[in-house]
Design a protein around this nucleic acid. Structure first.
Lengths: 138, 138
DNA sequence: TATTGACTGAGAGTAACTCTCAGGTAATAA
DNA sequence: TTATTACCTGAGAGTTACTCTCAGTCAATA
């Protein structure tokens, strides 16, 4: 059994967020000790993991709640849960594509600046080249 | 020259967001026509592109502003801008890694549910197997 | 002339945290 | 035994970056 602090460190989710999720029903089955302190079991960590996963790929809390509730409802909801996972995976793959595009933009900028910096250095060591070092704004 | 609507469609950024960015200095050099309507040039689109890129990889607006202001300040800020781009790229690569991990979680769930569903179908067609179809909650 | 459609700024609303506060308990230190 | 430290609690205010609503302007089409 883990304290909220341990879970926070293990899962890289802030204690505030864990309490927020717990309070709002995103992490079922949390037991408390005699001092009313939350104790997270391995099973509970499974809930944290899936909530974190869904949130990280941009699923909103309302939809996360829906998924959690389906899980609690029992086996009859397995096909619907399966569909949700497939949908979420699709969205995650789109995000991956988007992220790759943004990385291309960043790569372009990196090279653009790198060339300017190298050119500037060369001009300093080779003053025979009288071209001015003029770069565009961005 | 493009209207805000055209830019919104081309760049996949809402008109509201474009106005918000423009109003707060994230998109310099927007000119207006005699009716005070914003006109985006190709050059202006470059600003939109980099702001979108930085935001998409999670750079907060304050830091985006810093970058834009460095661009406007002139060539002397090129080394600092280069560093910002490198930092941002690093963050983007971390996000990529994270996204891949979440995709692993989703793949695991997908398989878990798929097996349960297939097993259930098989049991229906092959009632000699009397094992109950019992799945875990999540 | 009227109505359609895009545009404007100001400002309220939203999601999902994120942080602050005031206070409780339990264990260790003096 | 007191006090300090460290962690816990719920309630609720604050934050970011949009996102949406509103009331109103303007130009072109019916």
């Amino acid at each position: 059994m883990y304290t909220i602090k341990e879970v926070s460190e293990m899962m890289d989710v802030s204690e505030h967020t864990l309490r927020f999720w717990a309070k709002n029903g995103f992490i079922p089955d949390i037991v408390r000790d005699r001092n009313n302190i939350r104790l997270f079991s391995e099973h509970t960590l499974g809930w944290v993991k899936i909530v974190k996963c869904l949130r990280n790929v941009g699923v909103d809390l309302k939809s996360v709640k829906r998924y959690i509730e389906l899980c609690l409802e029992g086996d009859s909801t397995i096909p619907e849960r399966y569909e949700i996972i497939l949908d979420t995976k699709k969205k995650a793959l789109e995000q991956m594509k988007d992220l790759k595009q943004q990385l291309d933009v960043l790569d372009y900028k990196e090279n653009y600046y790198k060339n300017l910096i190298e050119k500037n250095l060369k001009d300093k060591f080779n003053p025979v080249n009288e071209q001015e070092f003029v770069a565009q704004k961005a």
